[in-house]
Design a protein around this nucleic acid. Sequence first.
DNA 1: CGTTGTCCCGTGTCGGGTGT
DNA 2: ACACCCGACACGGGACAACG
Length: 629
Amino acid sequence: MKVSGVDGLSRGDLTEGMMAGRDPLSFIPFNQGADERSGGRVSTWVRSWWKSRKGIDFGGMPLKAITKDNMFELRDLQAARLWILPPATMEVVMELLCEDRLAHPQWPHVFAVPRLMTHFWRKDLMKNADLLFTVPAGVPFWNAGQLFEPGSRALLQQFLAWASNFPPVQKCMEASDDRFPRLDDGEDTTNATDLEAIEASTTMHRYRSARDGDHLMGVPFECDLCSFRNVSGRQPIFCDRRDQFTLTCIRRVQLDVMWAREPHTVSSNWARTKADYQMVMTNLSVSPEAFLPQLGNTELRDRVGMGAALATLVTSLRAGRNSTNIQVDTMRKTRTWISNAHDAGQEYSCESVVGLDRAKQYVTSCHTFGKWYGRFMRGARLRMGMVRKQNEALTSSVALAVCEVAESRWQLSSDEEMRENLEDTVCFMLAAMGAGLRGEEVPLLSMEGLLAFWEESRLAADRFVMLTLKGRFKGEVDERWHLVPLSDNSRSGLPFRQWIGRALNRRVHCQGRSKGWLFQNKQGIRLKFGRYDPTFRVLIDAARALHPSLLPDIVETGDYSLWRSPRRVAVPETTNQDVSEKVIELVNRWRKKEAAKGSEPGLPMRQIYTQCLVEEGDVQTVACPEATN
DNA sequence: CGTTGTCCCGTGTCGGGTGT
DNA sequence: ACACCCGACACGGGACAACG
């Protein structure tokens, strides 16, 4: 306004801009179409998505630009129309457009015009357009690969409809400011030469752009703009930071949804679609709408759960412990609370499906249970990958070395407190290892149970230690006894009886205690594995010092914990020793229906415990009470 | 002491991948 | 391109460490 001289004129300044004699059109170019103003880039861009990658025109119809030379000869034009004329001509152009649509309804129209002199065209065009994109100035207009470019243009007729061919998603790339975590972040594979690295480098391009046919993979696809309107209920403001970021997130979500399917799956589906369509059209008298589904969403509504997906996605920007961003496992908790909250709210549904021999199934309208959201989670998971830091497995050789170190320290020490600490720690480790227990399960060892079997098992022909756990285990609804016998002569030679015997001896004879938990403090509170972890790590360190070749250098002592280390070895070692799967499962969980189940703690243990079966490796199994009674 | 992040598990289902 | 098989993964909750 200032440069043009309009501002100055209002204050009597007659020497600026137009008043100084400069051409008014140099300030407001009514005489230039979108192409002239962009140096031809608008029509180049339109043509880029009008043709498929193989160079086939959308709907088989070539796109012809309408110019001042042919705009009055439309009856002879056998092509789709690209209206790309200056705003100053719009009054005439709109008349011609309406006339042409009446006369030749079969031709699609693409309309691009700078947003000037809008009174001539905007109202009519909005009425006629099937799709309308309006973007104010100041937006990064020419970013390569932006599917939904700015500019003011209307796409008339048949673009999304059944007309002749599905419109492929042409170029839909992740936003330039997409900073969402990717598994391959930080890996430079651009100069890779060996096969493996080249293979990995292809993943650099995964998740970054959509592929032909991605919009037909079984879940709804709507463009970023529609999605934005669906979740916010308004048009985006392109200069608004939050709106921009929301659009970035929407693009990320869309790509994640698409990349839940492998490229080959998408391309086969797409190829099949096209091939079948061609075959039907050549051989049958069937109209396309008879077998092609209508695409798009007629309502302004988030029908897929874009809102929930966005909420889930932004959490992934939070900082994680293992890597820069949080893990997928952490991210997906958003889903959990949303579905929980959903059922807590108005949309709760009482409907359920009850199978005769299976769990109930519930009907829900929650988006997070939908197919689309599932795809999003899958895509996001694939993109993010996961970084896991698990407890190191405690092999029996390491455990033996720990026992060796503990034994010598125990023998040398006269400090009863230290001795007790050693006993408890080693006892904890052996019980966890022998029975494949998790760190939180070992404290369920009960004094009453242990003592009840102690003498008898010592005198038996095949000597063993009976571990007796009392409590409610994962997945169970009531308290039960769980009995696991550990052989005195186990293959690995772990001294179960020696250490458990020491611990029991101290409790019974020194402390006068024969009831309660094996691991409890003076107040009778059950102790957790964390209580013994420091001592356990000290013993590991000492064992390492004693046998330097015991562990690889890369393993850190901190990787060991009584939480999972003893249990992690149960799988590899038992597998190596050909222990039957049933036995593993039995010992791991005691839950196989036809095998041993625990029993109510109220019953006398004599009934629960029937006999020890064949020894297999370090573990023996208990016959199931139901089976024997 | 509450919150956040991580690790882990058992189970059932279906669609992707593979072989021809 | 077709036929078929099997394995990967979602799901929710439990547990605990680190942190504020």
